[in-house]
């Protein structure tokens, strides 16, 4: 009884775009890797503090059956109120750069419309997803409903289990890219990092399908 009272504050009315987004999750999902849409994303932020730092840019792309369509790449830059001078050199995204920028709300509306009910993929995904959820919270919205895969875990699963390798190691994007011989000239642009992450994801998943008969369900358990 108490629980019920607690759990049900007066029903909030969410904006149309959120209701549209939320409704997508009512249908049952695909269960095969090859007919699932994956959205690989990366965010560039002003820093690592979930509360005070803000997203500068969201880059994302879609993988359908091992294909990436460059026409369908998502790359949105966000207008900054809060500004952290220390991180500017890393990202090269200076406040009020010359290309079109969006407010955080506009960016998130576009983003929800882009990802729909796809499976989200990111490297060290917890960080990016939390950053986005913080943004949603500022709009009085609940967190993302999509399933999420972390390429760090997917890649790690492809490595042999041996005491000679540090099993707790957290692989950085650069380390994996080097191991897979992926060009890293676009590091620290959100879309560039998303592409690197996507290639790592494709190769690692292929490896797991081949050697361990991985299915989508098994990937979610990583």
């Amino acid at each position: 009884m108490i629980k019920w009272l607690f759990k049900n504050p007066e029903k909030k009315s969410y904006p149309d775009y959120w209701i549209r987004y939320e409704a997508l999750f009512n249908d049952p999902k695909n269960t095969e890797i090859h007919n699932t849409t994956f959205v690989v994303l990366d965010t560039e932020t002003t820093g690592f503090n979930y509360a005070s730092d803000r997203m500068l840019c969201i880059g994302a792309l879609k993988i359908n059956d091992n294909n990436i369509d460059i026409k369908d790449v998502f790359e949105i830059y966000i207008k900054q109120e809060y500004f952290n001078a220390e991180t500017v050199p890393i990202h090269g995204i200076i406040k009020n750069e010359k290309f079109k920028t969006y407010t955080e709300e506009e960016a998130l509306i576009l983003f929800l419309d882009y990802i729909k009910d796809a499976v989200l993929v990111a490297h060290h995904a917890f960080f990016d997803i939390t950053m986005i959820n913080e943004g949603l919270k500022r709009l009085d919205l609940p967190p993302l409903k999509n399933k999420v895969l972390d390429t760090m875990h997917v890649y790690k699963e492809t490595r042999i289990k041996s005491n000679l390798i540090d099993q707790k190691k957290r692989y950085t994007l650069d380390e994996i890219a080097e191991n897979y011989d992926i060009d890293v000239s676009d590091r620290h642009t959100a879309a560039g990092d998303a592409l690197i992450t996507a290639i790592i994801f494709l190769r690692s998943v292929q490896h797991l399908i081949k050697t361990k008969h991985y299915t989508l369900k098994k990937l979610f358990k990583l």
Partner: peptide, 10 residues
């Protein structure tokens, strides 16, 4: 919209 990946491909 800026398209970093397209630039990379080019």
């Amino acid at each position: 919209m800026k398209n970093t990946i397209a630039e990379r491909v080019a």
